[in-house]
């Protein structure tokens, strides 16, 4: 596929936003469970949610560039019964709304206790809103992932790993962001977030690595033989009917060499996983917020490469009809 920058930014930015929210909310849960010290509503949760919203909003903006007719974008919510894209279009604003509510309640300190459970664990309104937002967040991960994973003949994408990767990579980058954010706003939580960031990054490495291996070994079901229905081992295209190129040659080919793809893969492995893990560990050890910010920046850059590769590696069966590019 041709990696479209609008979609690369959309998915990576909302991933950070989603992860960041999940970090915040898990922080809150932990503090409710008194595993972690409680944090300042306004500064930490309020601003933190705001930050998550910024990522989400930037993602949304990026997505607009993907649409030919953005003024009609509202129509895209109508097919939630069948279309994961439609579902994403519904869930993303819902999640953003809930995050906004979550952050707003925290920010305003309007957080009544709705009841208690067990041994006096107070159920705050934000906890409920947060839980709903978390649901929305995972729904969003699912929707985003499924947009790709549901196209069954894009075999590089059509695997649960796609959704898992979206979750883990979003989570990793979000927790990294949370760690950096906490370095200023809640230093006590830095290690918690940073630690999880490392764990999630390593988990993501495992699943994304598995995906890489899987993709390298994929046996594509569609072949020139099935594409034109001729059973012969040697089939070569000599003309594709349009010499100046066509939508099919622009949309579905990355136009880069295999060597370039290999180097992007290494860039991804280094920037998404290796460097951030080291920087996170370092940042946590020496308690340097700047190092953690650096970790986030590096990881985000890496994610851009990761997502680029995600598209570029996906070989669309239509390309068999357009070999002669």
């Amino acid at each position: 596929m041709h990696p479209a920058f609008s979609v690369i930014f959309l998915t990576t930015l909302i991933g950070v936003g989603q992860g960041l929210f999940l970090a915040l909310y898990s922080g809150q849960i932990y503090s409710v469970l008194e595993v972690l010290p409680p944090q300042d509503d306004r500064l930490f949760y309020g601003l933190g949610s705001g930050l998550a919203l910024v990522f989400l909003a930037l993602g949304l903006v990026a997505s607009v560039f993907h649409l030919g007719r953005p003024e009609r974008a509202w129509r895209s919510a109508s097919q939630w019964r069948t279309s994961w894209l439609s579902r994403e279009v519904i869930v993303l604003p819902a999640f953003m709304g809930l995050t906004f509510l979550y952050g707003g309640l925290h920010y305003l300190g309007w957080d009544p206790v709705l009841g208690t459970v067990g041994e006096g664990i107070a159920i705050h309104l934000t906890l409920i809103v947060g839980a709903l937002a978390t649901l929305a967040c995972f729904a969003l991960f699912l929707a985003t992932g499924m947009i790709y994973a549901c196209i069954r003949f894009l075999q590089e994408w059509a695997t649960p790993l796609t959704v898992v990767n979206f979750v883990l990579l979003g989570g990793a980058s979000g927790f990294t962001a949370a760690a950096a954010f906490a370095a200023w706003t809640a230093p006590a939580l830095t290690t918690f977030f940073g630690g999880w960031a490392i764990i999630l990054t390593l988990l993501a490495l495992a699943t994304r690595g598995t995906t890489l291996i899987r993709n390298a070994r994929i046996k594509h079901k569609s072949t020139p033989q099935t594409a034109i229905g001729v059973r012969h081992a040697q089939i070569r295209q000599t003309a594709q009917g349009a010499m100046g190129g066509s939508f099919n040659t622009r949309e579905f080919f990355h136009g880069r060499t295999a060597a370039f793809l290999r180097s992007v893969k290494w860039v991804m492995l280094v920037l998404v996983f290796a460097v951030p893990v080291v920087l996170l560990a370092l940042g946590l050890t020496v308690a340097s917020g700047t190092t953690l910010v650096l970790a986030l920046l590096v990881q985000y850059l890496g994610l851009l490469a990761e997502r680029w590769l995600f598209f570029a590696q996906a070989r669309h069966p239509q390309n068999i009809y357009y070999q002669a590019v």
Binding site: M1, H66, L67, G68, R69, P70, R72, A73, R75, S76, S83, L85, I147, I151, F153, L154, S222, F247, N248, E251, F252, H316, P317, Q318, N319, Y321, Y322
Partner: peptide, 13 residues
């Protein structure tokens, strides 16, 4: 809306 998603979902180009 010109999102091109359907074209991705067509194996035949």
């Amino acid at each position: 809306i010109g999102c091109k998603y359907c074209s991705w979902a067509c194996p035949y180009g």
